[in-house]
Design a protein around this nucleic acid. Structure first.
Length: 475
RNA sequence: GGUCCCAUCGUCUAGUGGCCUAGGACGCGGCCCUCUCAAGGCUGCAACACGGGUUCAAAUCCCGUUGGGAUCACCA
């Protein structure tokens, strides 16, 4: 049987990192076995629907290159792929389930149900409507009385099922609550829709967060009542913000879009989250999607929660940035450079930046001196290790200016050789020339590149101008 | 509170009874390289939650304790 997995997000306007990881694992399970990856939109809660949210889902999946084989936009043999368009299907099956004895009509209001139960005391809602004879209930429904369809749990004893990562799970049927399957507005709840859809769409592996472990027996009951086989279950641990809290929108934790906006590369993010809860069993850490397809297996999925560590993502993203060709880097980096003066040598600037940023959002701070030198203190010229002070700097800059004016080949090699030579003939240390020049060009203590590299980035005219300015400042 | 799940360096993890004086990666410290800072190379610090068993032998199996998480919606 062909492996079919599905990513079934609800369109709430936010691509959560944990969600994306679930999608990745679903994609990898399918693709590692030549199966199909299906996209389904779970929008049965009209209150939570956010305009444009489905576009975020599409664009995110596309950005990380996880292409779906069937979905709302491209169709497929098992559509429609949007749950709100399947309303009548759920209604049909819900009524069928009532006939089968797996569910019943309930005329209680939500508040009536809420009043009865008590989580602390472990008192569950005992639905009085269960006792209404089916024929009578049908009459009331036909008469137009508002109703919901609730699951009926008749079984006693232990419910058992196998999970691919957690192993065998046993839960007592008494623990299961008789939840609403079809709401009074006619829409199904997740509890019902996911079962119907997964069966109808012939999903073979369901991947979801481990918060569903304890409700899975309820779904299995529905499968049983219909006489269907349930899919393989792959419950995955949570992605946490810290030991106590999981990553969430409410906490303001970064979403995939937020990270991309900060200049993290989609491939790096994907690589990083693949390793949050899964490992290849080898010491390899850098994986392309294609490589992951080859080595992924559910056996190597972990049971315990993983904390999302932005510091390690930074490192990994840095690896991806450094692996970019200079052209690719320049193309991506330009967007983060803002408006730069015409004198800037972009190629040289990007070459300097590439090994020095872990994510593109760090560029701005690195290049703030490029448009113009900001205000700085003369004391910046004092550096013990470089053996410079204000006086030496003034002398060095005065010496450097005429020499640089004569340089025709404004390249790093030539500039460096020239200044090194100048230092030698003047009996100065390299640093006594280079350090002041670098400060003159940037006005900053640390810069992406040395004096001569900055000179190349700024071009000859601008460099000479800045050195003159510095000489005046020190005079 | 009931039920379910989890538990190795700060973090991600390897480890499925002897190969473990517990390996790798990030981070952190040191050294090298060096026109500052990075990058790169080398190197150091750092963990089996606790207590009982089982066994010739336990991070690995069992039980308990502790700690953490999840769930108990007409949300998914």
């Amino acid at each position: 049987m062909k492996v079919r997995t599905r990513f079934a997000p609800s369109p709430t306007g936010y691509m959560h990192i944990g969600n994306l990881r679930t999608a990745l694992y679903e994609y990898l399970i399918a693709k590692s076995q030549n199966g199909d990856f299906i996209l389904r939109i779970e929008d049965t809660d009209q209150k939570r629907y956010v305009e444009g949210a489905t576009d975020i889902i599409y664009s995110t999946l596309k950005e990380v290159n996880m292409n779906w084989d069937e979905g709302p936009d491209i169709g497929g043999g098992f559509g429609p792929y949007v749950q709100s368009e399947r309303k009548n299907i759920y209604a049909e099956y819900a009524h069928k389930l009532v006939e089968l004895g797996g569910a019943h009509y309930c005329f209680c209001s939500k508040s009536e149900a809420d009043e009865q139960k008590d989580e602390e005391q472990n008192i569950k809602f005992q639905d009085p409507c269960k006792l209404i004879p089916l024929e009578e209930a049908k009459k009331r429904v036909a008469a137009g009385e508002p109703y919901v369809i609730r699951q009926t749990v008749r079984k006693k004893g232990k419910s058992k099922y196998h999970d691919e990562v957690y192993g065998d799970i046993e839960i007592d049927y008494d623990e299961l609550d008789e939840g609403v399957l079809l709401k009074s507005d006619g829409f199904p709840t997740y509890n019902f829709a996911n079962v119907i859809d997964d069966h109808l769409m012939q999903i073979t592996h369901v991947v979801r967060g481990n918060e569903y472990i304890s409700s899975t027996p309820k779904y299995n009951l529905i499968y049983e009542d219909f006489g269907w086989e349930h899919p393989h279950y792959v419950h995955v641990p949570q992605v946490m913000k810290d030991a106590q809290h999981k990553l969430s929108k409410r906490n303001g934790d970064a979403s995939f879009q937020d990270l991309v906006a900060k200049g993290y590369l989609p491939e790096a993010i994907l690589n990083y989250i693949a390793l949050l809860g899964w490992n290849p069993g080898t010491e390899q850490e850098i994986f392309s999607l294609e490589e992951l397809k080859k080595v992924f297996t559910t056996e190597r999925l972990n049971k315990s929660p993983a904390i999302f560590d932005i510091v390690k993502l930074n490192w990994m993203n840095g690896c991806y940035i450094r692996a970019l060709s200079p052209e690719e880097f320049q193309q991506k980096a330009t967007k983060f450079c803002g408006e730069l003066p015409a004198f800037v040598n972009m190629k040289a600037l990007c070459a300097a930046l590439q090994p020095r940023v872990e994510f593109l959002g760090q560029i701005a701070e690195q290049i703030d001196f490029v448009p113009a030198v900001g205000a700085y203190d003369k004391e910046l010229y004092v550096n013990k290790k470089m053996k410079t002070d204000v006086e030496i700097a003034a002398k060095a800059l005065a010496l450097t200016l005429p020499v640089l004016e004569k340089v025709a080949d404004w390249s790093n090699d030539t500039l460096f050789a020239t200044l090194k030579n100048l230092a030698e003939t003047e009996g100065l240390k390299n640093g006594q020339i280079l350090y002041p020049v670098r400060i003159a060009l940037s006005g900053k203590e640390t810069t992406p590149g040395g004096a001569t590299e900055l000179a190349v980035i700024l071009g000859k005219d601008e460099s000479l101008k800045r050195i003159k300015d510095a000489i005046n400042k020190l005079a």
